[in-house]
Amino acid sequence: MQKKLVEVCYTPGGYDYYKGNFEIVVVIDVLRATSAICSAIHNGVKSLIPVSTIEEAKAYQDKGYLVGAERQGQIVSGFDFGNSPYSYMKPEIKGKDIVLSTTNGTRAINIAKDAETVVIGALSNLDYLINWLKDQDKNVLCLCSGWKDKFNLEDSICGGAIAEGLLKTGKFISNEDASVAAKYLYLAAKDNYFGFLKSSSHRRRLKKLNLNEDIKFCLTPNQMEVIPILKGDRLVKLDT
């Protein structure tokens, strides 16, 4: 059986180098968009509509949608919430269609939207996602959202975790140094994500905003068995 590829792309700006060669794209934004999306779908939100700009988010809000909008780690004034995972656990939003726009994550989702399959990855759904990917027999690209098209540690570690999980099956190979580096970052961090990421730029950014509870949630692996998948313009729960 021919082995499939798994690679890690560190930023949306690098996506064009990989585009078209991977049937499955896993979008990752650990702090905090994809962690929030997993939380929302796990807690019964019907769908999430990811939009890249505040203008798009406002247009949906004008139509009556609940909208989460975040820039620079903070809720954008005038919107219902930001991208804290805890915002999407409230019982009053269960069964709703919600719009989300974030600094990095929703942009990455929309950049990848023409791929055959786009799913959402985070540390919170890590093992469940890896187990599903193992059975798909398709090439997998882990697309890290990064921070404003720059490398970040937490997304790269999560991408490395997915890559390592697939490589261990013997069904996958990686050819790129970026993937090798991501795998070794994960192996160095896996026993203590909190300690390893203590000095990371986005963790420090969120800490200054008093978002420590969000950080703890997002860096705690395997809290939920859910895979959000992009269907048309909406993220919904994948039936596995």
Rank of each mutant, 00 (worst) to 15 (best):
residue 145 S to K: 02
residue 81 F to N: 05
residue 122 A to F: 05
residue 72 Q to D: 15
residue 151 F to S: 00
residue 8 V to F: 08
residue 113 K to D: 15
residue 72 Q to I: 11
residue 147 W to L: 13
residue 46 K to V: 10
residue 76 V to Q: 01
residue 202 H to S: 12
residue 197 L to K: 07
residue 93 I to G: 01
residue 62 D to A: 14
residue 218 C to Q: 01
residue 7 E to C: 06
residue 21 N to K: 14
residue 117 T to Y: 10
residue 108 A to C: 02
residue 125 N to T: 00
residue 66 L to G: 09
residue 137 D to M: 08
residue 96 K to W: 14
residue 72 Q to T: 13
residue 77 S to A: 12
residue 83 N to G: 00
residue 206 L to E: 03
residue 71 R to P: 06
residue 139 N to G: 12
residue 179 S to P: 05
residue 128 Y to C: 08
residue 89 M to P: 06
residue 222 N to L: 03
residue 93 I to N: 06
residue 132 W to L: 13
residue 194 F to E: 11
residue 143 L to Y: 06
residue 109 I to P: 00
residue 54 I to F: 11
residue 121 G to P: 03
residue 60 Y to T: 10
residue 130 I to W: 03
residue 46 K to L: 14
residue 61 Q to G: 11
residue 69 A to M: 03
residue 135 D to G: 13
residue 12 P to I: 00
residue 132 W to F: 15
residue 49 I to A: 00
residue 140 V to Q: 09
residue 115 A to R: 01
residue 162 I to D: 01
residue 9 C to N: 07
residue 145 S to V: 04
residue 230 L to V: 10
residue 24 I to H: 03
residue 158 C to L: 03
residue 200 S to E: 04
residue 59 A to G: 11
residue 127 D to E: 15
residue 67 V to S: 07
residue 91 P to A: 04
residue 152 N to S: 14
residue 59 A to K: 13
residue 94 K to W: 09
residue 45 V to L: 04
residue 159 G to H: 05
residue 10 Y to S: 09
residue 71 R to A: 05
residue 166 L to V: 11
residue 126 L to I: 05
residue 91 P to K: 10
residue 185 L to G: 01
residue 89 M to R: 13
residue 190 K to I: 07
residue 76 V to K: 01
residue 105 G to F: 02
residue 126 L to C: 02
residue 109 I to Q: 00
residue 71 R to Q: 12
residue 129 L to K: 01
residue 169 T to K: 11
residue 47 S to R: 11
residue 239 D to M: 13
residue 179 S to Y: 05
residue 17 Y to S: 12
residue 27 V to T: 09
residue 206 L to Y: 01
residue 205 R to I: 09
residue 128 Y to D: 06
residue 33 A to R: 02
residue 222 N to Q: 04
residue 10 Y to P: 02
residue 52 S to N: 05
residue 86 Y to E: 12
residue 221 P to Q: 09
residue 72 Q to A: 12
residue 99 V to R: 13
residue 198 K to V: 01
residue 52 S to C: 03
residue 215 I to C: 08
residue 11 T to N: 08
residue 133 L to W: 05
residue 223 Q to C: 09
residue 178 A to S: 15
residue 76 V to L: 07
residue 68 G to T: 06
residue 60 Y to L: 12
residue 39 S to Q: 02
residue 28 I to P: 02
residue 86 Y to M: 15
residue 116 E to S: 15
residue 184 Y to P: 07
residue 14 G to K: 10
residue 62 D to S: 14
residue 41 I to D: 09
residue 198 K to W: 06
residue 121 G to M: 04
residue 203 R to H: 12
residue 236 V to D: 03
residue 1 M to Y: 08
residue 82 G to H: 00
residue 187 L to S: 07
residue 8 V to A: 07
residue 118 V to A: 04
residue 113 K to L: 12
residue 168 K to H: 09
residue 180 V to A: 11
residue 215 I to S: 10
residue 136 Q to H: 03
residue 185 L to K: 05
residue 219 L to S: 01
residue 125 N to Q: 06
residue 66 L to R: 14
residue 98 I to R: 11
residue 146 G to W: 04
residue 133 L to V: 11
residue 206 L to M: 09
residue 215 I to F: 10
residue 221 P to T: 02
residue 45 V to D: 06
residue 48 L to D: 04
residue 195 G to R: 06
residue 226 V to Y: 09
residue 22 F to A: 11
residue 129 L to M: 03
residue 110 N to D: 12
residue 100 L to K: 10
residue 133 L to Y: 06
residue 220 T to V: 07
residue 88 Y to C: 07
residue 45 V to Q: 02
residue 84 S to C: 02
residue 88 Y to P: 07
